[in-house]
Every structure is written in C-alpha cells, then in structure tokens.
C-alpha cells in the first residue's frame, strides 16, 4: 500500500468507550427522570443517539483517519436518507 495506515492506541479506544457510556447514561437519565420534557425528549434522545453514532463511526470505525472520500460518501448516504425521511413525513404532516 502506498501510504502507511494509522494505528489507533488502546487508550484512545478506552476514552471513546467512556464517552459513549456517559452519553448512554445521560440519555437514559433524561428519559426516565426528565419525563416532563415531552416531545423534546424524542429530539434529545435522537440527538444524543446521533452523537453516539458519530463517535462510533469516527473513532471505532476509523473514519477520522480514513481518506476523505469515506466521509463524503457516508455523508451523502445519510443526507439522502434524511431527505427521504423528511419528504415522507412531510406528506403525513400536510394531509
């Protein structure tokens, strides 16, 4: 291979894990004990889930150290999915 790859250290993986666990407890805590936030909880839960997903993809799945094309592709795929979702929900909201 023309370029050497990056080896992620054990400590970095462990740090990633700690942050993911913290986020998990945060989302559970908000949901179980902050129940009066109503619809906001859905948004917060999804927001935290997305942060977690990003952390997993960036550090565990190595996206951070991969060539840029991988980040571009996943960005396109995810934004397409989000547009699908918006166009679909739009139909239901405007009926």
């Amino acid at each position: 291979m023309e370029d050497s790859y990056h080896i992620t250290g054990y400590a970095e993986h462990f740090g990633t894990w700690v942050s993911l666990i913290l986020l998990t407890f945060m989302t559970v805590f908000i949901s179980v004990f902050g129940a009066d936030l109503n619809t906001l909880t859905v948004a917060t839960a999804l927001f935290i889930a997305s942060v977690k997903a990003l952390v997993v993809a960036y550090y565990f799945m190595h996206l951070k150290y991969d060539p840029k094309i991988y980040r571009i592709m996943i960005l396109i795929v995810m934004s397409m999915f989000v547009i699908f979702l918006i166009m679909l929900i739009f139909d239901y909201l405007t009926r």
């Binding site: 839960a45 935290i48 889930a49 997993v56 993809a57």
Partner: peptide, 26 residues
C-alpha cells in the same frame, strides 16, 4: 478482521438508535 470490526460496529450503531426509539419513549 477490520471488515468484521466494521460490521460489528454497524450492529452497535443500529442498536444505538433502536434503544432510545423503543425503550426511552417517556
């Protein structure tokens, strides 16, 4: 090995969304 890791992370990734969508509706 890296590919199996990627696959495993995906399994994790999906669970990250399934968990709040089913368990954390409050």
């Amino acid at each position: 090995l890296e590919n199996s890791g990627l696959y495993w992370h995906l399994v994790d990734l999906i669970w990250i969304y399934l968990f709040p969508l089913f368990y954390l509706i409050h």
